[in-house]
Design a protein around this nucleic acid. Structure first.
Lengths: 117, 117
DNA sequence: TTGACATATTCCCATATGGGTATATAATAT
DNA sequence: ATATTATATACCCATATGGGAATATGTCAA
């Protein structure tokens, strides 16, 4: 089965740093491909191909206007990532110190896995 | 160059749903492999291999205790993901409606890209 | 029609993947 | 020494990747 396709979900799509950069450049704006190309300095086919992935996975939407195609971020599709990672926030913040952790663990260990050291 | 290795950074490591599940199961606890295996019901080698990736990328740390290896989440390594995705939060919240977007765009368009429809 | 512009698509290739199965290593118990 | 438990590693394979270069498609202008 190999690795899941990049178009399988936002997590996979966004694993590629270039695609993150594109989303950053877009931000809240709607931009044509050539402006993204200009902003990033990459070959145009490269930008188009990454945009195609982002579009297929729903992270951007495309609108045609004359010869240009205007892309915009579909932020709701990033929410699953935020929702998944946000709960871990408490573990790196100042509110979470080793001591609390240890105390919490000691209480549970009474009827838990044996751990000899 | 193909896709960047899964061990290249947290984004790539976490793109695999099974690895996310492992991190969820771990949560704030320190668990031996067999408990993770039991919790998820996957073949042990599969769990070990995913743990190896998570460890190499720094998302978990390992401690040996007797014959077991105890794993714990290294939450700080998830912070880059949070930091990247969090700024987009404002775009899916109630505070960001289409109207604001359109008005903002109209003002800029005066000296911007020509968009005919 | 012809040309210029904006963007997408095709072709090629080295590379790492995740799953399965089998086996290796390490530590403890008998 | 040997068996058992806990975990890691090796091997095989189908598959999609991202980059580069070339080319196709689509739209407007003269």
């Amino acid at each position: 089965m190999a690795r899941k396709p990049t178009t399988h979900d936002p997590f996979n799509a966004v694993a590629e740093p270039k695609r993150r950069q594109i989303l950053e450049v877009l931000g809240a704006e709607e931009l044509p491909v050539n402006e993204i190309v200009e902003a990033l300095g990459w070959p145009q086919p490269m930008v188009s191909k990454h945009l195609a992935v982002l579009k297929e996975v729903g992270l951007v939407s495309e609108r045609r206007a004359g010869r240009q195609r205007l892309y915009r971020v579909n932020a709701e599709r990033l929410k699953p990532i935020y929702d998944w990672v946000a709960p871990f926030e408490q573990y790196w913040g100042e509110r979470f110190d080793r001591l609390d952790q240890i105390l919490e663990k000691m209480q549970k260990e009474k009827q838990d896995v044996p751990k000899k050291e």
